[in-house]
């Protein structure tokens, strides 16, 4: 029974990891841009949710607003700064986005202080269900359901709409997309903002589970990279499978060998990279 319980925990965690990593992966696929500020958007989403709740905004409003505000900030940063450095070497991407991540983290510390806080789950979901002898919070069930619906919508947008086809096309040749009359700069901004907004939403969803603290972004960035590397750069399905895999491995290991839980996900990453250097579903 404890394994079922940890499996459920793992799925919940994994869906959050998916939400966190899918943006990073799609941004890499389209822009060939390594975004070290992705974890900072997750951090910002969590703190915005926390702050909005403090101002008396309801949980659902806070969730949606946090994601939208993060997406808007990301759009401004993309057009004002990142757009100018896409053509440069990866080294510059890393320096610029790490700088950006540190700035966001410091701003969070200045505004909300260095000590973390807990965030209450919404009233409707404070209950729990019993899984055998184990208590499973309703909020976690909600997170699984909500992210599953979101994952389905995202899949439809990417695979079933013209916009999604243009985004996939852009990951192959931006020149050809321009030659068909699409403004690639606007598509880049939209995709970057969407990816960041999803990271922000993951942060807001995670806040009632793990609380908020200024260093959660760094931790999230590491996990997001592990998920993207395992799943394959630029792959939506890869991010979904790898997110669930990492979440489940981490949860089960917490039962088997708590000290090794974090280590296990990196070992999983090393194994995948050794066997399949492009990740499970990556392309060249």
């Amino acid at each position: 029974m404890i394994y079922l319980f940890q499996l459920m925990n793992g799925i919940g965690l994994g869906m959050l990891y998916f939400l966190l990593a899918v943006g990073l992966s799609v941004i890499f696929g389209l822009l060939h841009f390594v975004n070290f500020a992705h974890g900072a958007f997750y951090l910002l989403g969590a703190y915005l949710c926390y702050a909005l709740l403090q101002y008396g905004v309801g949980f659902w409003g806070a969730l949606v607003l946090a994601a939208i505000i993060v997406a808007a900030i990301a759009a401004v940063v993309e057009t004002g700064l990142l757009k100018r450095i896409y053509r440069l070497d990866h080294m510059y991407h890393i320096v610029a986005t790490i700088g950006l991540a540190l700035m966001i983290q410091e701003i969070v510390i200045i505004v909300w202080g260095p000590v973390g806080s807990s965030v209450p789950a919404p009233k409707a979901l404070t209950g729990a269900i019993m899984l055998g002898h184990f208590i499973y919070p309703e909020y976690r069930l909600f997170v699984i359901g909500f992210t599953a619906v979101l994952a389905a919508i995202l899949w439809w947008v990417l695979e079933g709409t013209r916009l999604g086809a243009v985004v996939r096309a852009g990951s192959e040749s931006t020149d050809m997309v321009s030659l068909l009359g699409y403004d690639i700069n606007r598509i880049n901004t939209a995709v970057f903002a969407l990816g960041a907004g999803l990271a922000g939403l993951a942060g807001a969803l995670a806040a009632p589970i793990r609380g908020v603290d200024p260093f959660m972004g760094v931790e999230a960035l590491a996990v997001a990279f592990v998920v993207v590397v395992i799943g394959g750069m630029g792959s939506y399905t890869g991010a979904l499978i790898a997110g669930l895999l990492v979440g489940i491995v981490q949860s089960l290991m917490t039962t088997l060998w708590p000290a090794g839980a974090s280590l296990a996900i990196y070992i999983a990453m090393v194994l995948v990279v050794l066997v399949m250097p492009r990740g499970l579903l990556g392309r060249a």
Partner: peptide, 24 residues
């Protein structure tokens, strides 16, 4: 003018590499 604006005004280029999107 930028490539997408020129394309929208009705000037189409079929490039040498054909520019087919293999993932689509």
């Amino acid at each position: 003018a930028r490539a997408h604006a020129i394309a929208r005004s009705g000037l189409a280029l079929v490039p040498e590499d054909r520019g087919i999107f293999g993932l689509l």
